[in-house]
Write a protein that binds this DNA or RNA. Structure first.
Length: 268
DNA sequence: ACTATGTCCTGCGAGC
DNA sequence: TGCTCGCAGGACATAG
């Protein structure tokens, strides 16, 4: 599922391939929940716009648009669980569950495909979010996020209003590397543990970006290629298998309604 | 102001 | 083989 490293990979691919291109026309599908802005507004905002830049904010893809007659705007794409943003030649066969197509002046197409339909498209004048980028903050900014929070640390890591971009896989992998149990109350973490967690989150995210993300669900980059970080997972999806550090069996529990994987011996 | 839980949605694999 | 059923989860609504 697309979390920060997967979205970062997609954004880098998009920035390379479609920055500077112009959206000539747009087709939008019939599934209303895909669109957070009214489809006519999305179409009118995209058509004729030049893509100035593509960047990532948390798990959001932000297309910065410049329109001769309408001024600046932003096209926001959230991939949800199974969303894919593909750069395709027009002759490529249409995948099932294609919900939006933007035809570019260069002849290629930007296609949004999303079987499970948790993904969302919108256009806004200003895009702001709460929460901070884990790869852009210091430890002194990180530690206070968890102070006074009585929720499990795993839930806190998933809370996009605190840190943005960490999802289920990287929460579990970070907690393993920090040797902290997912159900520990956030406020109970010592400064030493928070320091370990800060380092672990950043290391896991950086390594995952370097590997092009994890391809667990149907995540692929803009050209349809999978990432490879799932080969470096220590706990996620390894329930019942031996811990790579101590050989104890990895456990699976449910925290915040999410499958949660940890080593009962290494994580305290 | 927090925190917990239910809901959305389709594909896939287990089980019979 | 072919069917049913349960599970996967990001964000948001709602309730406590």
């Amino acid at each position: 599922m697309p979390e920060l490293p997967e979205v970062e990979t997609v954004v880098r691919g998009l920035a390379q391939r479609v920055a500077g291109d112009v959206i000539q026309s747009v087709w939008l599908g019939e599934k209303p929940q895909t669109f957070k802005s009214p489809p006519p507004v999305i179409a009118a905002t995209l058509e004729g716009a030049r893509i100035r830049s593509v960047r990532r904010m948390g798990k959001h893809i932000v297309f910065d648009l410049e329109h001769n007659s309408r001024g600046a705007a932003h096209w926001i794409v959230h991939l949800g669980m199974t969303g894919r943003m593909l750069v395709s030649p027009p002759e490529a066969g249409l995948e099932k569950h294609t919900h939006a197509i933007a035809r570019l002046a260069s002849g290629r197409e930007l296609r949004f495909v999303d079987p499970r339909r948790f993904g969302r498209l919108s256009v806004v004048q200003d895009f702001t979010t709460v929460g901070v980028e884990p790869l852009e903050i210091s430890f002194e900014q990180f530690a206070p996020l968890f102070r006074k929070r009585n929720t499990p640390i795993k839930s806190a890591l998933l809370n996009q209003k605190l840190l943005r971009g960490v999802g289920n896989i990287y929460a579990d992998e970070s907690l393993f590397r920090a040797a902290i149990r997912p159900r520990r109350r956030a406020a109970s973490l010592s400064r030493t543990e928070l320091r370990r967690l800060y380092n672990a989150v950043r290391q896991v995210l950086r390594k995952a970006i370097a590997a092009g993300g994890s391809s667990i669900s149907d995540y692929v980059d803009v050209e349809g290629a999978p990432g490879s970080f799932h080969f470096q997972h220590h706990v996620y999806g390894r329930a019942g298998e031996p811990c790579l550090r101590c050989r104890a069996l990895i456990k699976r529990i449910v925290v915040a309604g999410r499958g949660t994987h940890y080593c009962p011996k290494c994580q305290k």
